[in-house]
């Protein structure tokens, strides 16, 4: 019976196609990795798919330490930007989301629609006035300036996301706390936030990935080499006339390690969060 199920044509075709697509989708990463671990001349001559050759970490060492590429600084800057830009909007948006899900106030719908609209607006629409604003605040080409912008930008979608989650939490626990005499601040910090850890983890994972991946804001607001984040550093590697794919692939792999690790560690939350964020139910 079971064997018969396995041998149904639909099952066979589905397995073949799905695994073929999966491997095909993995292929560029494999190529990138193979290229990064060998001298570029060898890759050009033999192709990265040949397994024979000299494996080396020289490309990694060079992109990290050579002052011309200096990915180490980019790495550090990306962390300095991404960590606060994940935690700050998480807290601020959770507070706002709680207000949207529990309190009634005038302008509630207007403000909520505003947040939905902001979620759709492209980054390009904000950067020109922000450029001059940061300049006047002395925050241009400063990591703090980019942190402020990422944090504000993240508030909109996290508010929407957390509000959906809060709306699904049972109310009676909060009502019990109110009757027990707890203030709303106590309820929020002692009951709602601990209950929302899965959603907070999902939002944190997604926001971290997005901030880490950001290129456009960094490109506009950070320009000295010592302040650039990793995405900027990686694209400068290809600045030579002749592209050295060994260095470029090593840089690319370094740049994607942190988000891929976050994704691997929080995959369950990440995927559920992605689905919840889109479908409006956490």
């Amino acid at each position: 019976m079971r064997l018969k199920h396995v041998l149904r044509p639909a099952v066979i075709i589905s397995n073949l196609v799905a695994w073929l697509v999966a491997l095909l989708w993995l292929l560029p990463f494999v190529g990138l990795f193979m290229t990064s671990t060998r001298p570029f001349e060898e890759v050009v001559l033999q192709g990265w798919w040949s397994l024979a050759g000299n494996y080396t970490l020289a490309n990694y060492v060079e992109v990290l330490t050579d002052p011309q590429y200096d990915l180490a600084t980019g790495f550090k800057n990306s962390f300095i930007v991404a960590l606060p830009s994940t935690l700050a909007p998480l807290l601020i948006a959770a507070l706002a989301a709680y207000a949207f899900s529990r309190f009634s106030f005038t302008m509630r719908n207007l403000l909520f629609v505003t947040i939905l609209v902001i979620m759709a607006i492209p980054q390009q629409t904000m950067v020109i006035p922000l450029f001059f604003l940061l300049k006047s605040m002395g925050l241009l080409d400063q990591l703090l300036g980019v942190i402020l912008i990422h944090s504000s930008w993240g508030i909109a979608w996290i508010t929407f996301f957390m509000r959906n989650y809060f709306s699904m939490l049972p109310r009676d626990v909060e009502e019990a706390a109110r009757v027990d005499g707890a203030s709303y601040a106590t309820i929020f910090f002692r009951i709602i936030l601990p209950l929302s850890l899965p959603a907070l983890a999902a939002a944190a994972a997604i926001q971290f990935t997005w901030v880490w991946a950001d290129f456009f804001f960094a490109l506009i607001f950070l320009y000295s080499p010592e302040n650039m984040v990793i995405t900027q550093k990686v694209v400068t590697i290809k600045g030579q006339y002749q592209i050295d794919w060994g260095l470029l692939s090593a840089g690319s792999i370094l740049a994607m390690i942190p988000p891929v690790l976050v994704y691997a560690a929080l995959q369950k939350y990440y995927l559920r969060g992605m689905a919840g964020w889109v479908t409006g139910k956490g």
Partner: peptide, 11 residues
Amino acid sequence: IFVSMVIPMVV
């Protein structure tokens, strides 16, 4: 298949 969604888009 999802991994390519997680990497920075410049990469």
